[in-house]
């Protein structure tokens, strides 16, 4: 069974960098890492291929500056190879543009299953996976907390507000997984060694047959009109207990309309 995992490479949340007032976007000069959200998809894919006893995990990523830092981590975890789409024409690409690119890259292989995260940790529109599925003409199942493969289909336990739905879906299909559903393995020393020689196929928009005008700032259906620093957190109200603290707390909560 061959599984493609979409992995987004993002700035390290511990060192998030700054916004560029000129372009109104994040300065992406520091190195990128594997989005933790996607580490669950990678782990899930490795477990599924392992259980199937045959097949490979292939990564697909779109990122600026031919960045492979996050891909190397996922390769060190055990994925077999990666496709990286990197192209200056992609600057400013919105979620639909991203989906077009990913769909084209995935379409070059013919996986039995495509995994993505429910939402990325930095952009978190949560819209890319469903769009990729639509563009590929694949059924999509969202919010998966468990996936089992059986014959030609997948059984998915799909997280809902008050439990889960049990969904069956024929393959090939796309499933987006929620965070924390499996424990991603740590790349091992041997895995890191092996990852150095695993193939990363670097392709451009043209290689994928995509018109550069349909992606990037040009193709984007979005415009960033302004950026502002997040307001500083206001200091909280300190209630000194003079025997009436409970009443004042109730009043405070009442005002917030949470009672």
């Amino acid at each position: 069974m061959n599984v493609v995992v979409c992995v987004k490479q993002i700035p390290d949340p511990a060192d998030p960098g700054e916004l560029d007032p000129e372009t109104k976007t994040l300065k992406r000069d520091s190195k990128l890492i594997l989005d933790e959200s996607d580490s669950y998809g990678v782990e899930m894919a490795l477990q599924l291929v392992d259980a199937a006893g045959e097949g490979e995990v292939t990564l697909v990523s779109m990122a600026p500056n031919n960045e492979v830092g996050g891909l190397r981590t996922a390769l060190a975890m055990g994925a077999a190879s990666a496709v990286l789409v990197s192209d200056e024409a992609l600057a400013g690409t919105d979620a639909l543009g991203t989906a077009k690119v990913l769909a084209a890259a995935i379409g070059r292989t013919s996986p039995d299953l495509v995994l993505a995260a429910t939402e990325s940790s930095d952009g978190y529109t949560g819209t890319v996976p469903a769009q990729v599925a639509e563009l590929l003409g694949l059924p999509s199942v969202t919010f998966a907390k468990e996936i089992a493969v059986d014959g030609g289909g997948v059984h998915v336990k799909r997280q809902t507000e008050d439990g889960y739905d049990s969904v069956e879906c024929p393959m090939p299909c796309l499933v987006s997984v929620t965070a924390g559903v499996v424990e991603p393995r740590y790349p091992s020393f041997k895995g890191i060694m092996a990852a150095k020689s695993k193939p990363v196929d670097e392709v451009t928009v043209a290689d994928l047959g995509i018109d550069a005008g349909s992606v990037g700032w040009a193709g984007g259906g979005q415009e960033i009109v302004g950026i502002e620093p997040a307001p500083a957190r206001e200091s909280g109200e300190v209630i000194e207990d003079e025997g009436d603290a409970h009443e004042r707390i109730v009043a405070f909560l009442d005002e917030l309309k949470v009672l």
């Binding site: 393995r185 740590y186 790349p187 091992s188 020393f189 041997k190 060694m193």
Partner: peptide
Amino acid sequence: RQYVEAGWGAVSFDEAYGGG
């Protein structure tokens, strides 16, 4: 167990015995 699995103890030992 995780430490063993990650293999961090093996980095500088002889390759003939599974080291790095």
